[in-house]
């Protein structure tokens, strides 16, 4: 239990560090945001007034603590470009990103678990070889090329997919059906990696002595796999899956842009282009939180699944 709290404390420190970095990075940026807000012809007084209004004239540490407490309270600052609270700007976008990420994650799990188990069950069989070769190729394709491929195949050739974002207000099912295609482009490489990891993990476990014990009790091969091997083999896979969530979100950045999905990724790209730093800052901190939370989750799941560690 102490290890658990130690871990939690470490995460808090990491979060503090990341927020400080995110704050510092966008505070020491050379370009003064007042110029982009007021334009080239602003007077000295106008600039000074705006600087005071934005709190740019206070000492750094004070600006950081104010910014951090505001951030924790859910006040992410004001967008330079849209002149509205960043949290209001991001709220509708979080939904789209969450939906895409969640759907991709489900796809990865739903496809890779059975494939990995089947491939390991018949080592060097036809399916195993097929999965290994396809996996190697799939892992070599960047998400956005997969995305272009998905558009080309499903929208232009087969015509089963309209290249226009369907918001959830137009019906949940239509929304999910639309997101399925970009999710495919996000999920494929990770699916290949998960299949490979699970296959290797199962094959490694099948060589363990306890498997021989299970067979000696009269267990059928399938029962050995499901009741005895699966939990042990899943320990590294579950950890990997938890750690993969940030990668899925990173892949969605590109995919959102490609498919025109109004999510956090698209917002991030346009804000970088517009030098809308409060928005970039907020998205970076959210991403950092996701990364830290997922690494905590991975650790927690590992402890839950492996009794040799969980007890301590």
């Amino acid at each position: 239990m102490t290890a658990f709290f130690k871990r939690l404390a470490l995460l808090l420190v990491t979060m503090l560090l990341v927020t400080a970095l995110a704050f510092a990075a966008f505070t020491v940026i050379p370009a003064d945001p007042t110029a982009s807000i007021l334009g080239m012809n602003a007077t000295e007084e106008q600039i000074a007034a705006l600087r005071a209004k934005l709190g740019l004239d206070l000492p750094l540490w004070q600006r950081y603590t104010t910014w951090l407490t505001d951030f924790v309270r859910g006040n992410f600052g004001t967008s330079y470009r849209f002149s509205m609270p960043v949290e209001d700007l991001l709220r509708p976008r979080v939904e789209a990103t969450l939906a895409l990420t969640g759907l991709s994650f489900l796809l990865i799990v739903a496809v890779s678990l059975p494939l990995g188990l089947l491939a390991a069950h018949k080592e060097d069989g036809l399916l195993d070889r097929l999965v290994t070769v396809c996996g190697q190729v799939t892992m070599s394709i960047p998400n956005f090329i997969l995305g272009i491929g998905v558009i080309w195949l499903f929208a232009l050739i087969l015509g089963v997919f309209q290249q226009k974002y369907v918001p959830p207000e137009d019906g949940l099912w239509a929304h999910i059906r639309y997101l399925l295609f970009p999710a495919l482009a996000v999920a494929l490489p990770k699916t290949a990696m998960t299949v490979r990891l699970l296959r290797g993990s199962v094959l490694g476990e099948l060589r363990q002595d306890y498997v021989r014990t299970a067979y000696s009790k009269g267990n059928a091969p399938r029962a050995v796999l499901v009741f005895h091997v699966l939990r042990n083999a899943m320990i590294p896979v579950v950890t990997f899956l938890a750690m993969t969530i940030p990668d899925i979100m990173a892949a969605s950045i590109v995919i959102e842009q490609l498919f025109g999905i109004p999510g956090l990724g698209q917002m991030l790209i346009s804000s970088i282009g517009n030098r809308d730093y409060p928005v970039v800052q907020a998205i970076v901190v959210i991403a950092a939180f996701v990364v830290v939370a997922c690494s905590f989750l991975a650790d927690l799941l590992y402890r839950l699944m492996d009794p040799r560690i969980g007890g301590r």
């Binding site: 990075a25 979100m249 990173a250 950045i253 991030l268 790209i269 970088i272 970076v284 990364v291 690494s295």
Partner: peptide, 10 residues
């Protein structure tokens, strides 16, 4: 721990 694309973008 961070996806490298995200950091590079920032």
């Amino acid at each position: 721990a961070f996806p490298s694309i995200l950091l590079a973008l920032v």
